[in-house]
């Protein structure tokens, strides 16, 4: 699982049917100080994570397949939690970036 920051979203009309109705969110994995590390991943989101909020994303395909309710779905990354933060964009541990 990665600590990541929500940095965008995307629309795709033509996609695997299991993605229908799911928010496709661009999540940038970040290090402890909030510094980006690695490639942005697209995760499905049902928790309503807002822009620049920190989330935990998991690449456990089976949990994602259960979430979308399709055992044949290629979905992989799913937002499993939103990090507790004082105000959107920062964390309980002060975000040295902002």
């Amino acid at each position: 699982m990665y600590l990541a920051r929500v940095e965008g979203s995307l629309t795709a009309t033509r996609k695997h049917p299991s993605f229908e109705g799911w928010r496709l969110v661009i999540c940038q994995p970040i290090g402890r100080e909030g510094r980006p590390e690695g490639v942005p991943q697209i995760a499905i989101d049902s928790l309503g994570a807002g822009m620049h909020q920190r989330v935990i994303i998991s690449s456990d395909g089976s949990a994602a397949r259960i979430a979308v309710g399709d055992p044949k779905s290629p979905v992989r990354w799913i937002i499993t939690g939103v990090v507790d933060e004082v105000s959107p964009g920062t964390t309980a541990l002060e975000d040295s970036l902002s």
Binding site: R5, G8, S9, L10, T11, A12, H52, P74, L97
Partner: peptide, 20 residues
């Protein structure tokens, strides 16, 4: 590797990174 979506529009707003 398999294609799972054809992207229409992307709303990308990365948080600016202050240099270390």
């Amino acid at each position: 590797a398999i294609t799972a979506a054809l992207v229409d529009t992307v709303y990308y707003n990365p948080k600016p990174v202050t240099p270390a």
